[in-house]
């Protein structure tokens, strides 16, 4: 299995599966509470005009988080995903 990527490195339109969430404290809690837990499938659906924050489609809703927050999330590209 290839090395997990940081969520920040995904391009718009790419799909991936969450590998680990290493954030602690309030940030970790908020990320997990929103359902960003290992095994979750996400798709990057957009980036803000200044490239940050990023918007993810997951579990039937859209979540946005800052790039520096996304750095705590490692992902594996979804099999058969474009790019």
């Amino acid at each position: 299995m290839p090395q997990p990527l940081r969520l920040r490195e995904l391009k718009v339109g790419q799909r991936a599966v969450i590998h680990t969430v290493s954030a602690q404290g309030e940030l970790g809690r908020r990320i997990r509470d929103m359902g960003l837990v290992p095994g979750t499938e996400v798709e990057v659906v957009g980036r803000a005009p200044l490239k940050d924050p990023v918007a993810l489609r997951m579990k039937g809703f859209t979540l946005s988080l800052r790039n520096n927050e996304a750095d705590y999330v490692l992902v594996n590209l979804a099999p058969g995903a474009a790019g």
Partner: peptide
Amino acid sequence: STPFVMELPP
């Protein structure tokens, strides 16, 4: 800064 983690509601 308070985490941004925010839903973009439909």
